[in-house]
Computed example of a mutant assay.
Amino acid sequence: MRSLRKSSMYSRWPLHLMLLPGFIILFIYQYVPIVGVSLAFQNFVPSLGLLGSKWVGWDNFSYMMALPNLYRVVWNTIYISVLKVIAGLVFPILIAILLNEIRIQLVKRSIQTLIYLPHFLSWIILGGILIDVLSPSSGIVNAMLGWVGIEPVFFLGEAKIFPYVLVGTDLWKDFGFSTIVYLAAISSINPNLYEAAVVDGANRLRQIWHITLPGMTPVIILLATLSLGQILNAGFDQVFNLYNPSVYETGDIIDTLVYRMGIQQAKYSLATAVGLFKSVVSFLLISLSYFLAYRLANYRIF
């Protein structure tokens, strides 16, 4: 048996060799940076290096908890993330059900392609587009609002509006991907159930309520529970490309706070402490989400 395994491994060495670049990249970008976690417990001075900087224990974490804006930033992160999760569950389900009712395949596939395209664009590109589109002076959105007598709205400069702009634009970018997942779930439903429902006199709404939605329930539960692990990830790329100091009150999140502390203000130890705090909480949430996914939807990683 052992010789058989060895021969099998040797015969498949090209496949193992193909994995080597991926492992090297994973090691460089995911495991080597773990050494930098020690900055959270030091008064790090770049000229002294990791070994020469003074160790201060939990002082950076104590200072972090005393930051006046920390709790506001954590609240902003959770609030924006929860809104994104809710919108990212409800809206794609509705669109998937509506698309499933379209009988002309050319129209159905065309709509799928159009709503899926923004998913492939980076937030650098979309950020520039949205800044132009939502501009209070020259943006097409405010121009359309002016046609019906509404004053221009500074979507990216009003603190009260900005979180909902983030949720709306994130939904526009990514709901096409989730819609395809739900369409796949609908396609796995036994068509005989619909035929039996027609025989019993059920209309389309009854069929959706009693067959389509229950058939989608395992996928809905799975995606909902897995999304718990992303509660502290409100979308750095999106926020960084759209926010400005005037919306820090409601738009500043943990990742942007870490960026400003570490890159702009050179507070490397404090930024690492905040980032480590987020990583630990995120790990706990991800563990909880996978546990719930296993219990509620029988989801397994392997």
Rank of each mutant, 00 (worst) to 15 (best):
S8Y: 13
Y10M: 13
H16E: 09
G22C: 05
L26Y: 09
I28V: 11
Y31V: 15
F44E: 10
P46E: 02
L51D: 07
V56I: 15
G57S: 10
M65N: 01
L67I: 09
Y79A: 07
L89H: 10
P92E: 10
I93T: 11
L98G: 15
L99A: 12
N100Y: 05
N100P: 02
S110E: 00
P118H: 05
L121Q: 02
L121W: 01
D132S: 11
L134E: 03
S138L: 10
I140S: 15
V141N: 05
I150F: 00
V153E: 03
L166S: 13
G168H: 10
G168S: 05
K173W: 11
Y182Q: 05
S188D: 04
A196P: 08
V199I: 08
W209S: 08
T212E: 04
P218L: 13
A224W: 11
A224C: 03
I231K: 08
N233W: 15
D237S: 05
Q238P: 03
F240C: 01
P245S: 13
S246C: 07
S246N: 06
E249F: 14
I253Q: 02
T256M: 00
L257G: 00
M261E: 09
M261H: 09
G262A: 14
L276R: 08
F277A: 02
S282P: 03
L284K: 04
S289C: 05
S289W: 01
Y290C: 08
Y294C: 01
